[in-house]
Amino acid sequence: MTVLLDDPMVTTPWVIDQMRRETADTFTFILKPVKGHGRGSFQFEPGQFNMLYVFGTGEVPISISGTQEQNGKLEHTTRVAGTVTGAMGKLRSGDVIGIRGPFGSHWPIENAIGKDVIVVAGGIGLAPLRPVYNALVGRRDEFNKIVLLYGSRTPEDILFRSELEKLSANLDIEVFVTVDRSTMGWRGNVGVVTSLLRNVPFDPRNAVAMVCGPEIMMRFSVHELQRRGLKEEEIYISMERNMKCAIGHCGHCQYGPEFICKDGPVFPYNRISNLLGTREL
């Protein structure tokens, strides 16, 4: 019995190098290839996702939260949401999971060169944008203003907190964090992330926005950005649907004419704006 290496449905084992707890219900895996498996380097673009397989339990799509330069290591941040992610949360460093990928479209970093960049994240939606802000900061000179807006449920749910604090201390990127519900000791902003958009400094004639979070949060963010005068084709959002194969064969992730797995998950808003208003599409 031999493994068909070119079968896109066959997973590749990766070992958990480090398991980092982020908040009460989110965690990050840092993975490295298992010796004798894999294909050398793992190339991906910010916004792309992998299918993560837990032995005997199942497979789920999780976006890549690590940066591109990580000595061949791969990073995924996820929230315990169901059977498979629940099983993932119980894994420890040294355990092995399966990886297929990377799949899907990516955030338009090249399109943002020479423009103001507004990154808007809600909840776990910060994870797929993490490679974006890290790439932007790494190539700081190529962009104008960089603004990161992040809405979290409570102060305790803030992801990558120390990293955001470090970024915020850097004067060349503006970071605004807000929580929907404040708890004891929180001295930061309270309110939904969309209300931050109203007064955030950027030039709508020369800017690009990348938005990721729950669908409702993205829709309201897009409205605010449009109200600020940003063009539809300069607003990018990341969609989510059921996925079984990630290669456009299983049919589950269809959204109107789009396959979220191969045409998305990242779309320019104008490409799907006519779909967002239809219920149960």
């Binding site: 493994v3 066959v10 997973t11 070992v15 032995f55 005997g56 355990d95 092995v96 399966g98």
Partner: peptide, 13 residues
């Protein structure tokens, strides 16, 4: 699609 065999904390396809 495939089978996998557990090998300690790892598995092979």
């Amino acid at each position: 699609l495939w089978m996998a065999k557990r090998q300690g904390r790892s598995f092979s396809i």
